[in-house]
Design a protein around this nucleic acid. Structure first.
Lengths: 290, 290
DNA sequence: ACTATGCTGAAAAGAATATTCTATCTAGTC
DNA sequence: GACTAGATAGAATATTCTTTTCAGCATAGT
């Protein structure tokens, strides 16, 4: 008779807090049935719903039957849905407390050191985004996007710290089906690669202090050869800004150990979506009046 | 007879959010009966209890009868306790979700809705930073940093959209004078490169939906070979999280055209600075007691 | 192709909960 | 000191929610 553990199997002990539950779900995910997997995903993505709503409501929202929710809870080792819900509720309470603390410390007028580095960098990132919003000229974005759309090919040029931005741009341009070349300098061929850029192309160059000599040299040289340059840099006085026909100056926050790329990447994202829109428009016009 | 509105008086309209309710209670406090006053005090002091517990439980904790709780809710203009409880529940959620809305309304306070895409993406970036702050477990950062410091070499593994993060990490590790290898897959040698990772090393892998098959395969394989894996991904259910010994789940905001890297990069920055600190500590200790 | 096993969905049973009702109590007033 | 209006406690009721059950269905293995 003891083998009749088919239903309400409590082979597993029930996780007592949310962190445990999360890893328990992750660990057993693969062995769950398809529907139970979808419930698992829903639970991890909407923990607040699980905490506050009733089984019927949650089930509807997740597109399953209430009984399946109960089954899920039992599979995870709880004796019913209600028991599992407690875990989600305590998570909510713990979060609310720390949230309040955060408000309190913010209200303390920053006279207080944050509790962890993460808070520092989140604050810093938010500040640099605000600065970006305030300093970037909207028409410049449109102008740069126009240049990129008009270009036959887009050459992406960046080194060191700025390189991730160029790579992100390459990824985006690829998805937009825009021709591009990422000048990565493999095999020391960067100058040769760059030399292929013609006036019908556009170079999108990114560089921050300390400016990469290669990037600056290439930008200057190609600019003189008549190739339009769109620059993303950190000061209107940077040599890149000088060489560029259109340039963005992303304010650079202070002297952190490793400067953040948050602002430049946000700008890059905006630029790419703008390019995408303009390409679509152009496509439409071409279709309308051929 | 119409004057028999003595009970269930709905003379007052029910406050719709917690702030309103709070001031409504404060305003009418003096005119409440003694017991209702004590309930009012309890409610404002233990809003979490009101949100999550049952009437019976709350009543016992507050030292009154359940019916008194109902009467209190009705006095405040709700048609029952349950209705009032909703307000307390949404307060609890407000702390956890919808930073979007909060930021939007902050922007609205400044007078204006978003005029350009840039404003949209700045908002979005800030929201994802907030979500990052709330969802990342601080001890996990320390654990991951310890692993990285202890590693003989750090192998960086990422593809496509996640690659900029790996590159940024490479840049930072280089500056920290920590040995690393960036698995860039040049010449299709990624698997071979990765195969060199030994248990004394650590692989730092980054992958977001849609997960790169190569990254997942390598992480799984090396994990089985005993190499510690630190993962940065977007869900506890991602195959990368499963294979990793320590993993971060960076909440992924909705369905933007090109997903932002703001949050992962902020996390990467935090992780690198933490590693730097721990390396310095270690160095000091070694100097102190040789 | 067939059987066995496990999963899913609908609905009914069962448990818990909120709300209402009435008798009782308290405080203020004549 | 009795009376009245309002508030309270406790039990009864009605409602809502969770859980179980069972039949049908899909899946995988023989």
């Amino acid at each position: 008779m003891s083998d009749k553990a088919t239903l309400t199997e409590k082979l597993v002990e029930a996780p007592a807090d949310y962190e445990e539950l999360k890893s328990a779900i992750a660990g057993r995910y693969a062995s769950l049935s398809r529907q139970l997997q979808s419930i698992a995903r829903f639970a991890l993505e909407n923990p607040n719903d699980i905490a506050l709503e009733t089984v019927a409501t949650i089930a509807k929202r997740a597109g399953v039957q209430p009984s399946s929710m109960v089954r899920f809870a039992q599979t995870m080792g709880y004796d019913g849905f209600t028991t599992m819900q407690q875990v989600f509720r305590s998570r909510l309470m713990a979060g609310a407390v720390s949230y309040r603390d955060r408000i309190r410390s913010m209200a303390k007028d920053r006279g207080e050191g944050p509790e962890s580095l993460l808070d520092d960098f989140v604050d810093e990132g938010m500040a640099s985004l605000q600065a970006l919003r305030d300093s970037i000229d909207r028409p410049t974005i449109a102008a740069a996007a126009d240049r990129l759309v008009a270009a036959e090919e887009v050459f992406l040029l960046a080194q060191r710290r700025a390189f991730p931005v160029a790579f992100y741009l390459a990824y985006a341009l690829g998805r937009l089906e825009k021709r591009y070349r990422l000048l990565d300098g493999t095999g020391g061929l960067m100058h040769q690669q760059a030399a292929q850029a013609r006036p019908s192309d556009t170079i999108l160059a990114i560089s921050f202090t300390p400016y990469s000599q290669d990037v600056i040299d290439i930008a200057r040289e190609r600019s003189e050869a008549g190739v339009p340059i769109v620059g993303i840099t950190d000061s209107p006085l940077s040599p890149l800004a000088m060489a560029a026909s259109v340039s963005f100056e992303v304010p650079d926050q202070g002297d952190q150990p490793f400067r953040s790329l948050v602002a430049p990447l946000c700008l890059a994202q905006t630029l790419m979506v703008t390019v995408g829109q303009k390409m679509a428009e152009r496509e439409n016009n071409r279709g309308d009046s051929p």
